[in-house]
């Protein structure tokens, strides 16, 4: 039985859980921050995009693994 396809699916599926939660937290906190301090919206947006980039990279690693397999 060839388990490669299952491994691929598990790699990206499990790997996407963490970043998904992380991006949700980042976005929520950013909205909170903007709500508390609307003047800093530009700065918060830049920081949020950077942080999402970091979180997303982890999902991308999982994706690469699943593509290589």
């Amino acid at each position: 039985m060839d388990l490669t396809k299952l491994a691929k699916g598990l790699a990206i599926g499990l790997g996407a859980i963490g970043p998904g939660i992380g991006i949700g937290i980042i976005g929520g906190k950013a909205v909170e921050a903007v709500g508390r301090n609307p003047e800093a919206a530009g700065l918060v947006r830049t920081m949020m995009i950077l942080a999402i980039g970091f979180a997303e990279a982890i999902a991308i690693y999982a994706l690469v693994i699943s593509l290589i397999l």
């Binding site: 980039g53 997303e56 990279a57 991308i60 690693y61 994706l63 690469v64 593509l67």
Partner: peptide
């Protein structure tokens, strides 16, 4: 690797 794979992964995943 973080830089390289992030960019590659995003763009490649987009193409896929």
């Amino acid at each position: 690797f973080s830089f390289g794979f992030r960019l590659f992964g995003n763009i490649f995943a987009g193409e896929v």
